[in-house]
Design a protein around this nucleic acid. Structure first.
Lengths: 320, 320
DNA sequence: CTTGCCGATGTAACCGTTTACACAAAATCC
DNA sequence: GGATTTTGTGTAAACGGTTACATCGGCAAG
């Protein structure tokens, strides 16, 4: 019994013929160790939990793809759970998950401090995605929204736009707030005396369309910068309905670089976030934590400016 | 010990005060049962495995969303694994998963007969998604590709198009073959003497673009039907590059109704597949199998024709 | 021919639950 | 009021692995 276990695992101290014999029988029986029993005795599950606020859209499928890639490379399994809008529900999901995994990747919309114990529940290490703030000492992976928004605004200004409107995201969303901050800072530093023009939005396509209407009614700016791509797409439609051309009458830019941006007409200038890469790195961070390695607490990813036709730059062809 | 177990589970035969006391202590200790130990003794994991060929694109994120929705409604966890291109790798993943789950949803590109044991490995029930064929007695969920393709072709014919070209999918892909069959049948039955015009493709955007070039060079048909949406989008670009307008010079239709189709210009006529719904139903099928209920073996979903501007019908506005 | 050592294998305790069964106390019956 | 049922709680044996430790040959050294 012990010899079988040793053969199938560590391979330490098992004589050649015995080893072969065990392996032969095991394969004849199509034997597979019971993971629960193994977890019971080793206190490891070889599974990473993934907790997401939602699953809609391309952002999450990219994220999961990155995580999955890294997980399979390390022989780890993935336990997925989503739709955790409010902190209470997320906390419940965290509890339900904790005895089944060795570590958890948590993506939260709000800063996690509120529902997150300083040390993960039941001791499993936690890794945070987004949400900006510090998470009680857990490592976190965040996008440099400020820098991305700054770069977009700067780019628009560099092509001669002086009056740039900003369609904001949800007021309580940290990512949205940072993007607004980047827009403001760029206006001040690059254009100097430019005045802000901020239109409310909520990251949804519809709110982008509404914003376009509001903006068109108020006298056109030189450019519109939407805090995410979905709003930019809605805005594009709204402008078209108002009979305005992009980038002819007004330039347009978004944020995220979701795949759709390449297919709309004109293709959207945006700030590209390496979503899958972040997922991969987050999982590797989990693996490090499990094996007791130290990891840096804050990982910040700077978006890359992608110039496309909607801002009057880039290639006029939709695919560059 | 037994009383604690009874309190936390079945709630049978535990006196009021005892029950309260147990619950109080449990919450004070933030006690959570060890899922491995529980699985060991109950032989249930309350987890469903999900095996996918890939994670790229919106199709899979929708599918997972549907599965997750149903899983959380039933208190089940989800173990996800993807990127199983070839059968051998899928079989390995199946083995790795089987001791950790109560049932597995397998999405395969080829018919599963080859790598799938008649009864799931280790006895866990299997449910198949796509791949068309019979799967050794396991329930399967398939899209009625034939009917969908027939409906699209019929629709194009009904708006007066006589010459309809078809951009095919990979020759060995069952879904693709069925769509081709639907196209052919509709041509025969609806138009009668129409001759087929089949252009090769592989479901990729690029192959759609190439097809457009081929078609434009060969004298324009009245309409082009692409076997999936991504090719239709590529085709649209190819036609635009060739200076042709859709639907003015030629009508265009796709298949799947991925979200992007609403945002391209003109919006794409397509056959809508209820992806999330299929995921939900597949998970419910797993739950039924686990609890020993009988389920029907073949679930077929008929796509819904979505008429948009690319075929000259539908509203000219991109969002209907 | 002992003695000691070492490498390979066997033994048994433990991981944390569930659950059949034993048991005690309380409630019901004649 | 004793026999009998009911009700609630405790005991111990699984579940299927891992691993510290005991055991057992074989071989080298004395």
């Amino acid at each position: 019994m012990a010899t079988v276990s040793r053969t199938l695992n560590g391979m330490e101290k098992v004589a050649g013929p015995t080893r072969d014999h065990v392996l032969k029988i095991a394969s004849e029986l199509d034997y597979i160790p019971h993971s629960g029993a193994r977890a019971l005795s080793t206190r490891r599950t070889d599974t990473i939990g993934v907790l997401l606020p939602d699953l809609h859209g391309e952002f999450f499928s990219e994220l999961i793809r990155g995580i999955d890639l890294a997980a399979r490379a390390r022989g780890l399994h993935l336990l997925l759970s989503s739709s955790h809008g409010d902190p209470a529900e997320a906390a419940a999901a965290l509890r339900a998950m904790r005895s089944r995994v060795d570590s958890i990747i948590v993506m939260s919309l709000q800063p996690g401090g509120d529902f997150v114990p300083a040390s993960g529940p039941g001791g499993v290490p936690l890794v945070f995605l987004g949400g900006g703030a510090h998470h009680n000492g857990h490592p976190s992976f965040v996008i440099d929204n400020y820098a991305g928004a700054f770069a977009i605004t700067e780019h628009l200004a560099s092509t001669g736009k002086r009056c740039i409107a900003f369609v904001a995201g949800p007021p309580d969303n940290i990512e949205a707030k940072e993007r607004l901050r980047g827009y403001r800072a760029a206006l001040r530093q690059v254009i100097g005396n430019a005045s802000e023009w901020i239109v409310p939005g909520d990251f949804s396509e519809q709110s982008g369309r509404d914003a376009a209407r509001t903006i068109a009614a108020g006298g056109l700016p030189d450019a519109i910068f939407c805090a995410n791509d979905m709003m930019a797409i809605g805005c594009l439609e709204g402008l078209r309905e108002a009979g305005l051309s992009v980038p002819g009458d007004v330039a347009l830019a978004g944020f995220d670089d979701i795949p759709i941006t390449r297919y709309v007409n004109p293709p959207l200038t945006t700030a590209a976030v390496p979503i899958a890469e972040i997922g991969r790195r987050a999982l590797e961070c989990c693996a490090d934590l499990i094996s007791g390695r130290k990891t840096s607490l804050k990982h910040k990813f700077k978006p890359v400016l992608v110039k496309r036709a909607s801002s009057g730059s880039g290639t006029p062809s939709p695919h560059q």
